[in-house]
């Protein structure tokens, strides 16, 4: 997204768009329907009923447990940049009047990577859904596992998968919403374990990062690692336009309430 004061040029269709028009249109290009990233807060406003959100676990924060070079500086920088201190919004809310548990990722924090805090918050959110027998919605956006937290970050895959398993055993209904981008350990754990998996149009979704794939110099199809390709290959149920997401979630949740 190239900004020139009040307008920008869409990197998908090259149309010059007023930023105001983009914001009004849920950050979807009015010319070509390309879905641009949203912050966790914007997405929350989009999906849940007004004033219904009660945030949980706001006091969790990342620490530099392994003394990884420059990690504390990067944490500080991104806390300042995003205004988020715990990297992900989790809590209870209502969608279409139905009470649910919800977790929403934010790509702005260390590339949206998943470390111990996100692992713990996702896990607690699922546990809360389990205890209160609420449907669960997780909106994923992830740059994979966080390198600076090493093997502990990797373990969050097993931890969140464990929570998903418990939740499923107790009859919980989990809707996974994949947004651009969802990669690495998130895709290979909780994001792929939904009873229903939906994605936004054009969302990049995969296990291997683009750099790793590019290193093999294979010729790649145009929709490679796009939501559209994952639907075609049988790993996603639906591609849903941002403006229709809340209605679809409401419809889905209504089946199990």
């Amino acid at each position: 997204m190239e900004k020139t004061q009040t307008t920008f040029t869409c990197r998908f269709c090259n149309a010059d768009i007023k930023i105001e028009a983009l914001t009004k249109n849920l950050k979807v290009c009015p010319a070509c329907d390309a879905h641009y990233p949203m912050s966790a807060q914007e997405r929350l406003n989009l999906l849940v009923d007004v004033d219904s959100f009660e945030e949980a676990d706001t006091n969790l924060y990342s620490i530099d447990a392994l003394e990884f070079p420059e990690y504390p500086d990067k944490l500080e920088r991104d806390i300042a940049k995003t205004g988020l201190r715990s990297e992900m919004l989790t809590g209870a809310a209502k969608i279409g009047g139905y009470p649910i548990a919800i977790a929403i990722g934010d790509v702005g924090f260390i590339g949206g990577t998943c470390g111990a805090v996100i692992g713990e918050k996702v896990t607690r959110c699922i546990e809360h859904a389990c205890e209160t027998q609420l449907p669960l919605v997780i909106v994923s956006v992830s740059g994979g596992m966080r390198m600076q937290e090493g093997t502990l970050a990797l373990m969050q895959m097993a931890k969140t998968a464990a929570a998903c398993t418990e939740y499923a055993k107790n009859g919980g209904f989990y809707i996974s919403v994949m947004t651009d981008p969802t990669f690495g350990g998130a895709t290979a754990s909780y994001s792929s374990l939904g009873d229903v998996i939906v994605a936004e149009p054009g969302a990049r979704i995969g296990f291997a990062g683009p750099l790793a794939v590019a290193s093999l110099q294979e010729e790649l199809p145009e929709n490679f690692q796009k939501a559209e390709s994952l639907v075609a290959h049988g790993f996603i149920d639906h591609i849903v336009h941002r403006k229709d997401m809340r209605q679809l979630l409401t419809d889905l949740i209504s089946y199990t309430y």
């Binding site: 006091n59 969790l60 990342s62 620490i63 692992g119 713990e120 896990t123 373990m155 969050q156 931890k159």
Partner: peptide, 10 residues
């Protein structure tokens, strides 16, 4: 696995 992860909570 539930108990793996180091973070601050305060």
């Amino acid at each position: 696995y539930r108990n793996l992860g180091l973070y601050g909570e305060d």
